[in-house]
Structures are given as C-alpha cells and as structure tokens.
C-alpha cells in the first residue's frame, strides 16, 4: 500500500548550511507521526518542503500520492498546515480570519462560529487578532487549519507557548482528527506530547532520521528499566531490569533493602541518548 507521506533521500542546503542530508520518512494513512530533534535539526525545513513552501535540492517527497515539486496544487488541496510561527492576520478579527479561510476553502462561513466555540475563542471573536495573547493566536491558528478536515495535517510545534489547558485542548483536537482518519505529522519539543499522541516517532539529527519506531521501541532501544535499591545504612544501588526475574533476584540478593524504585526510561532519556552529543555542538544557546 502506498504511504500517505513518502520521503526519500531529501536534501536541502541554505548556502553552506546543509540542513537535510538524505532524509527518509514513511507515514501511513491515518497515522499520527511525530518528528523529534534538537533545535536546528531541520524539522521546520522538512515540514516546509512537504507543504510546498520550499523546494528541495534533491530527493523526492510525495504527500497524499502527489509529488510536492511536480504537482504542488494537488498536494495543497489535500493538506493543512499550522506553522511554527502563528499564521494569522493581525488586522482582522478572529471571526474574520476564520470566515476568510472558509471562503478560500470553499466551505460555508458558518464553520467559523463552531471553531470559535471549540477553541474557546468565542468571547474574543470580534476583537482584532493583534490584541490576542500568544496562546489565543496559536489556538486561532490551529482553528484556521481545521476549516476543512484535511487529508493530511502538518503541525509544527503546535503547543509551544500554550498553557496546560490549551495544550490539552490541542491534544484533544489532534486525537479527534486522528480518530476520524486524518494523517497527522507533528513536530514537537515536548516528548510527553509525542509519547501521548504519536503512534510512531522519528528522531532526526544532522539532517537524517537517526531512529524511528513506536515510543516503546525507542525506549527499549536506548535504555532498559532500572531498579533503584535504597538502604538504611549505605548508598543506593542501581540494577538494570531486562527480564521479569531480575527484580526478584535483586531483592533476594539484598535482603536488607529498605525501599525500592523502578525507573522506566522516558522519551527524554531516548532523546538525550540519541542526540545529546550533537545537539550541543549544533546549537548551544537558544
């Protein structure tokens, strides 16, 4: 079966900066797929190429069955993008922004009211977007991407700068869309977000995919669970837990244990293990 997003050997350089050096990706229909990577890894560049905003230097990319270079209009008809920078019109009101998008997408302007309610913007509907807070802009931005239900939705750091409640609203929206069969490609700095939303995750660094799989697979790959054994009279000990028997054996060996803790590797551990060294070199401050 053909993939909904299929990327092969994608390369892109800005002058001397080589950003993508042969990126490969395959995303299935209806899947929520997360791109992880340190600042400057090329996540936004990848999203911009896949959404026809930027021409790649080499390689191929197909979205919803259409080549992004040769058939950009067919790709555009199938996608929606919420970019890293909020793409809203500050001079218009929230309601006007949504009605404008509805008209451009050829749907009834009535969806505007629905979306305003859904993203908790009804009270601010008739205010100019210039006066919105960062979180409100972000929510409007997402609402503008959902005027029609796209076949493929691209979300570049959709929850950066949102408070926990708004973040939850965005997560709910993504999960609802996913359950309706929308394919979602999202980038994020919050590993919890990837863990919670995405079926599969690709870690990119140095312009390539360096690891790919489900959250569980990635965690299993870089670290095992560890058992931390605390004692009343001596320093704590850590033992790796790889098999079901390991915990029992550790306890038998340390009958004087006072307290035990089981540590699961988090996606953060995965992230640091995979990208730690290179991210320090790439972009130390930001």
């Amino acid at each position: 079966m053909a993939y909904t997003i299929e990327v092969e050997g994608l390369t892109k350089a800005f002058g001397d900066t080589r950003v993508l050096e042969g990126l490969d990706l395959q995303v299935d229909a209806g899947e929520v797929f997360a791109l992880l990577g340190p600042n400057g890894a090329g996540k936004t560049t990848t999203v911009r190429i896949l959404t026809t905003l930027l021409a790649p230097d080499g390689g191929t990319a197909r979205v919803a069955g259409h080549d992004v270079v040769n058939d950009p209009n067919a790709v555009r008809a199938a996608i929606s993008l919420t970019a890293q920078e909020a793409a809203v019109d500050g001079i218009l009101t929230g309601a006007e922004n949504l009605r404008m998008m509805a008209r451009l997408r050829g749907v009834k302007p009535g969806v505007a009211d629905e979306l305003l309610d859904r993203f908790d913007l009804a009270d601010a509907a008739d205010r100019r977007v210039d006066s919105y807070s960062g979180g409100m802009r972000r929510r409007l931005d997402l609402a503008m991407s959902l005027v029609v239900r796209p076949q493929v939705l691209f979300l570049d750091e959709p929850t950066t700068g949102l408070d926990p409640r708004s973040r939850r609203a965005v997560w709910d929206a993504v999960q609802t869309l996913a359950s309706e069969g929308v394919t979602v490609l999202l980038t994020t700095q919050y590993l919890e977000e990837a863990d919670r939303l995405a079926q599969r995750i690709a870690v990119i660094d140095g312009g390539r995919v360096i690891a790919q799989g489900t959250a569980a697979e990635l965690k299993a790959r870089v670290a095992s669970e560890t058992l931390e054994i605390h004692f009343a009279d001596k320093p704590a000990q850590r033992v790796p837990v790889n098999a079901p028997d390991d915990v029992r054996r550790a306890l038998e060996q340390h009958p004087d244990a006072e307290r035990i803790e089981l540590h699961r590797p988090s996606l953060d551990d995965v992230f640091f293990a995979l990208t730690g060294a290179s991210s320090e070199i790439a972009e130390p401050v930001r």
Binding site: T51, T52, L53, N73, A74, R76, A77, I79, S80, L81, A83, E85, A86, A87, V88, D89, G90, M101, L104, R105, M144
Partner: peptide
Amino acid sequence: TTGVIDRFRTLPI
C-alpha cells in the same frame, strides 16, 4: 513579512 502569507501559499488557489 506576516506569517499568514505562508498559509495562503499552502492553499490550492
């Protein structure tokens, strides 16, 4: 210079 232009560029228009 405003971000909304990129949104328009991704529309089939």
